[in-house]
């Protein structure tokens, strides 16, 4: 019950907050950045990225034997003059990219004053803007234990305000279950693409199954883990009753400096486990504390991490 009341209070505060997440100057900087897709995806419309599909693009790809019905304009007459064989030119077709922003909206993201959830929303908005600037399609999907209402894939910079409105309306709450949420996401989404997971990865049932589910279904996971330094330096001393904000589980504990030190070590080990998991499976991974200024994050950390061109 306490968790529910806390989430409601946080939601009320979120409504009162201005939903203008970025100013114009900041968005102008982001406009020149683009997402480097590490894989090609099939798309119904022509985009700025090469896809595996051979078609009506400008970039020559290959030749093949002429078959009846092929467009005569694609016959390579030079080859026929040299070799006497009818070959048809094939072109790589330019297609747009689908970017799915999976934003963790569980209760653990809303702990504290400067919440990870606000940070995640800003991050998602920025990524969406960059994606839209690159003429790709973006979809925003908040999740907790289940997949929430999603912003359908949109294209064009003008859609950014829809993204802002959508993110502004999302309220944090509930527990985290990446397995269930990502399973639902995979089943509901026909178009494969880049699945950017923005979360603190505080999931009771683990993150491994969820991320694997994305991989196995040909999505490209891109993991952004948000941490909060204040969670590592809690002002706790003495006998306390720890309550999990998502599950309500309680645990009596006597907090000592030594215990806090152990907690920090355990948190670091846990983060390292997530990073190792991602690297082992060639999943892009990035970790940032919310205390890092957002400008620095977008312009320097992401660039240093190879996320933006």
């Amino acid at each position: 019950m306490a968790v529910g009341r806390g989430a409601a209070r946080k939601a009320a505060r979120g409504e009162a907050k201005s939903e203008v997440l970025f100013d114009e100057a900041f968005m102008a900087k982001l406009e020149y950045l683009d997402i480097v897709a590490k894989k090609r995806f099939v798309s119904q419309q022509r985009g700025e990225r090469r896809s595996k599909r051979i078609g009506a693009g400008l970039e020559f790809a290959d030749h093949r034997r002429y078959s009846p019905g092929d467009d005569f304009k694609n016959i390579d007459w030079n080859v026929y003059a040299r070799m006497g064989r009818l070959l048809v030119r094939l072109y790589e077709e330019e297609e747009d990219l689908y970017v799915y922003l999976l934003v963790d909206s569980s209760a653990s993201m809303a702990v504290g004053d400067q919440t990870k959830f606000d940070y995640a929303r800003k991050l998602a908005a920025a990524l969406a803007y960059i994606t839209l600037s690159s003429l790709d399609r973006v979809s925003v999907l908040p999740f907790s234990a289940e997949l929430g209402q999603q912003l359908v894939p949109a294209r064009g910079k003008a859609q950014i305000f829809r993204v802002f409105d959508f993110l502004g309306g999302v309220r944090p709450g509930g527990r985290t279950s990446m397995t269930d949420a990502f399973k639902a996401f995979v089943h509901q989404t026909r178009r494969r693409g880049l699945a950017v997971v923005i979360s603190d990865f505080y999931a009771q049932d683990g993150y491994e199954d969820g991320l694997n589910y994305l991989r196995y279904n040909k999505f490209e996971p891109f993991v952004i883990q948000l941490t909060d330094d204040r969670e590592l330096e809690p002002s706790l001393r003495g006998d306390v009753l720890l309550v999990d904000c998502e599950t309500g589980l309680q645990k009596e504990m006597t907090v000592t400096p030594r215990l806090l030190s152990k907690y920090r070590a355990a948190h670091a080990a846990w983060c390292d486990e997530l990073e190792a998991f991602c690297k082992k499976r060639q999943v892009s991974y990035f970790r940032t504390p919310v205390q890092v200024p957002f400008d620095d994050l977008m312009l320097r950390i992401f660039r240093a991490g190879g996320f933006l061109t």
Partner: peptide, 24 residues
């Protein structure tokens, strides 16, 4: 009365559980 501990909300209790596993 002394044992009525202060209630503190944490985002992810399994981490704390992992810490005190060996002590308690």
């Amino acid at each position: 009365l002394k044992l009525r501990r202060r209630r503190v909300e944490v985002p992810f209790s399994p981490l704390w559980a992992r810490v005190v596993e060996e002590r308690q």
